[in-house]
């Protein structure tokens, strides 16, 4: 997907963003990989914060150079030339008046950015995300005749329309952060927080947990996919449907194993008797880009590896390793899951 050419609308923003992004990339030696970067804004809020970042970085750099310049001058200039610096006036001008003037400008600017960032919009797509150790339960509530469904570790949003994510936590404190789309919001048990943003260009971004939440805090990420409206509606329609029936014997065997191993006591597969609410909803697990909360690309191999070695790959998660399957069993089980598109 070519991210640059599909950006829509906002022509003035496009030029400034491109230039600004180029500047930032020049600044950062590593360059911008992009999928999880506050320096590569893909939405209005992220862009607004990005500008704030840029202005403060530039201003801060100038002030820093000024202060160190004055300091070095005070040390190394000949005594008669630096004498004018050595009085109370220096403190009053440099330490009192100058910061007061600069900050009197910065503070209102910061507050205005704050006012305009993360503003709930009428008609925004509502999504609920619940942080759990160490994955994300994502719910799309019923809306205008479209029925509710649940997925995990990925957030699919339509490009150009506002989204409001309602977050909370099922256990400990997590924090929901998609750097490309805006700031972070904590997920706190007993509290309900909201974060509003708009993805301005199609693409795949990455979100992570930003509040330390225990053993596998490091491996708690998710994908954000911004789709064009029609593609989004198609995805949504597919997600609403119950799980696909297996159409090959190999896959049916996988489903039987799924049933026999008791997977359904923790996982839901809508349309089957699997109705456990503890773990992620697997109705359309095959359609997701990654597994293990943003850890591995989703394919039969990784699925099989995950099932057999959960505790080795991501020690401390709630799901035990299912090491007793034979290789063939694992393949069919994984193939069944992979078929749940």
């Amino acid at each position: 997907m070519d991210l640059k050419t599909t950006r829509q609308g906002l022509p003035w923003r496009r030029t400034v963003t491109t230039r600004a992004a180029a500047f930032a990339c020049a600044l950062s030696l590593a360059g911008c990989s992009g999928v999880q970067s506050a320096l590569d804004p893909a939405g209005g809020d992220a862009l607004r914060i990005y500008w704030l970042t840029l202005i403060m970085t530039l201003g801060g750099t100038l002030i820093f150079l000024l202060v160190t310049g004055v300091l070095l001058y005070a040390i190394f200039a000949p005594p008669e030339r630096r004498a004018w610096l050595g009085g109370r006036r220096t403190i009053v001008v440099g330490g009192l008046a100058f910061p007061i003037v600069v900050l009197s400008g910065l503070l209102p600017y910061g507050l205005i950015v704050m006012r305009d960032t993360d503003v709930p919009m009428p008609g925004a797509l509502q999504v609920e995300v619940i942080g759990e150790q160490y994955w994300w339960r994502v719910k799309y509530p019923e809306e205008g005749g479209k029925s509710e469904f649940s997925t995990a570790n990925e957030l699919i949003v339509p490009v150009g329309s506002p989204v409001t994510v309602t977050v909370t936590s099922a256990d400990v404190i997590h924090s929901f952060w998609i750097p490309n789309l805006g700031g972070k919001i904590d997920m706190i048990p007993g509290r309900i927080n909201r974060l509003s943003f708009t993805a301005e260009r199609p693409g795949i971004y990455r979100g992570v947990c930003a509040e330390f939440c225990g053993d596998q805090h490091a491996r708690m990420a998710f994908d954000v996919v911004a789709l064009e409206r029609t593609a989004f509606e198609a995805w949504r329609a597919a997600q609403e449907k119950p799980a696909r029936e297996p159409d090959l014997p190999f896959l049916s065997r996988g489903r039987a194993l799924f049933r026999a191993a008791g997977c359904g006591s923790c996982h839901v597969v809508r349309g089957t008797e699997a109705d456990g609410a503890f773990g992620p909803d697997l109705t359309h697990v095959g359609s997701r880009r990654t597994i293990g909360a943003g850890q591995f690309p989703n394919n039969i191999g990784t699925l099989a590896g995950w099932i057999a070695n959960t505790q080795h790959i991501k020690p401390g998660v709630r799901m035990p390793s299912y090491g007793s399957f034979t290789g063939e069993e694992l393949r069919s089980l994984a193939a069944y899951l992979e078929s749940l598109k």
Binding site: A38, A46, R48, I49, L52, T53, M56, T57, G60, I63, F64, L103, L106, G110, V113, M114, T117, D118, S175, W177, P179, G182, G183, K184, I185, A210, E211, F212
Partner: peptide, 19 residues
């Protein structure tokens, strides 16, 4: 201190916090 002023601006901190 200068980066401190940066994180004092809440919107910037929403990005920088816990990073």
């Amino acid at each position: 201190g200068l980066t401190g002023v940066m994180v004092a601006m809440a919107p910037f901190d929403w990005q920088a916090h816990d990073s």
